[in-house]
Computed example of a mutant assay.
Amino acid sequence: MPINLSKGQKVDLTKGNPGLKNIMVGLGWDVNAFDTGADFDLDAAAFMLGSNGKCPTDKEFIFYGNLEHPSASVKHMGDNRTGEGEGDDEELEVVLADVPSNVERIAFTVTIYEAEARRQNFGQVSNAYIRIVDKDTNQELIRYDLGEDFSIETAIVVGELYKHNGEWKFNAIGSGFQGGLAALCGHYGIEVA
């Protein structure tokens, strides 16, 4: 049975699963039933952070425009532009042992593409979740349902993996930002053109 987390809860990932090597991070959502005149295109991303809470270089920002870290430790499995269908809408894969030693945390985020132009926000999105699956056994380990706590936000830090005493843990964050992807990039030290 997966562990269902609440906002702010932290849980051990590798301590109780000593063989855990490869994980899949799945993010999903539904769009509420009203029309803003444009499709919702939500995008998952990962920010690989150093001890200062920033990405060391642009290569540590994994998203639809940079699908794989040079170490191959974090891979984005591709952009889903509609969010239709059951199950995960976007997925990232993480090889825990290959995460570079200068990366202490990996933050997982979801943003709304062109949110301002399309007049969209997370108040119009429901059933958003993140789940962590052991890729080798296909067993769901952790699930965090974000609930309906958002209104005008256009970006969410969903949760993060972090290293503590040599073990990986997960923190359910669920904090919203205004300003979409650009705001998140600024927060994590990535310059946006």
Rank of each mutant, 00 (worst) to 15 (best):
F61L: 15
L184D: 06
Q124C: 14
F61H: 04
A172Y: 05
N52A: 08
G174Y: 03
V31F: 00
S101K: 15
I190E: 00
F177K: 07
T57A: 04
G174L: 04
E148H: 11
E60L: 02
V125A: 03
A44E: 08
D41L: 04
Q124G: 15
N17A: 09
L42C: 11
E153Y: 03
T154K: 12
G176R: 04
I173Q: 03
K15G: 15
A172R: 13
I152R: 11
T82I: 05
E148F: 05
S126P: 08
G26T: 09
Q178P: 02
E140K: 08
G19M: 14
R118E: 11
E93S: 11
G147H: 03
V125F: 07
K10P: 00
V158L: 14
S126Q: 06
H76Y: 12
E104Q: 03
E153A: 04
P2Y: 05
L13E: 02
E191M: 07
D41Q: 12
R118V: 05
N127I: 09
S151W: 04
D149I: 13
N17C: 03
S126D: 06
R131C: 10
E114F: 02
I23F: 09
V103W: 00
Y64H: 11
V192E: 05
V157A: 10
L161G: 01
T154P: 13
F177I: 10
I130W: 00
G147E: 07
L20H: 03
E68F: 06
E167N: 14
Y162Q: 09
Y144A: 10
D136T: 06
K7E: 09
R119A: 14
I130C: 04
S73E: 14
L96N: 06
G87W: 01
A38Q: 11
S126W: 01
E114A: 15
Q9I: 06
G147N: 02
G28Q: 08
W168A: 10
V192Q: 11
T111Q: 06
V110T: 11
I130A: 01
G16N: 13
E167T: 07
Y129M: 08
R118N: 15
A97H: 09
P2M: 10
L96M: 10
S51A: 12
G65D: 13
Y113E: 11
D79V: 01
N32F: 05
L92E: 08
N171W: 09
